[in-house]
């Protein structure tokens, strides 16, 4: 059986067509994000107070759905998993940067993707967030040469779950599903405890 996917990296579509299809894929993403409720910070910030679990529910369902399709497609030989872009894991920058990101997310009620939808629906706070993003990017460009060592520390390469625990894509898939569901059940349980206490 011939591996045809991903179409672009396998040479079945050229760069221009890939870019055009990217616009269409983005339109689908934007439509779904807005329909899911990601077009307003009112649906994102309450997650951090356990008043709403919309964000973790959508994220976990999306991760499991996409992971299942990629896993099955790879097992059947339709998808060349090695050609799918997976960012290099940098342990320390991801840990520290992730925490900084979390602070900014609860402070603003946005992340870059949802803010694009927020701007499209005229949320003024999304517009200010996006202006902040531009300033923050510029700030990072300016300080990068001073933090270059930290920014590239803990380089683990293309570090997938099977490389951490041993085994192959099957173990990666099982752990991904288990971890996603486990995390979702955990936040649902925490929400129940908080709701019963009558806080909020």
């Amino acid at each position: 059986m011939e591996t045809v996917f991903p179409l672009f990296t396998n040479g079945f579509i050229d760069n221009n067509l890939n870019l055009m299809l990217g616009l269409g894929i983005g339109i689908i993403f934007g439509f779904i994000l807005e329909r899911g409720g990601f077009g307003t910070s009112a649906h994102i910030a309450p997650v951090f107070y356990f008043r709403s679990l919309i964000v973790p529910k959508i994220m976990v369902t999306a991760i499991i759905t996409a992971a299942t399709l990629i896993f099955v497609g790879s097992l059947l030989g339709y998808i060349d998993y090695s050609q799918i872009f997976i960012p290099t894991t940098y342990l320390w920058p991801y840990l520290i940067g992730g925490m900084i990101f979390g602070l900014g997310m609860v402070m603003s009620g946005w992340c870059p993707g949802t803010a694009v939808v927020g701007i499209a629906t005229l949320k003024i706070d999304a517009i200010f967030f996006a202006l902040g993003l531009l300033v923050g990017m510029f700030f990072y460009f300016d300080i990068y040469e001073y933090i270059i060592d930290f920014a590239n520390s803990g380089n683990l390469g293309k570090f997938t779950i099977d490389k951490l625990v041993g085994g192959d894509i099957r173990i990666s898939y099982l752990i991904t599903v288990a971890a996603s569901l486990g995390l979702l059940l955990f936040v649902i349980a925490v929400k129940k405890v908080i709701d019963n206490k009558g806080e909020n």
């Binding site: 994220m59 603003s108 990072y140």
Partner: peptide, 28 residues
């Protein structure tokens, strides 16, 4: 928050979309 998030995404090579969703779906 935008300023902070932007700088953080350069350290983490992506945000909730490009890093969290994409990475988790591809077993990173």
């Amino acid at each position: 928050g935008g300023v902070i998030v932007a700088a953080a995404t350069r350290l983490t090579r992506g945000c909730t979309s490009g890093q969290a969703l994409d990475g988790a779906a591809t077993f990173s």
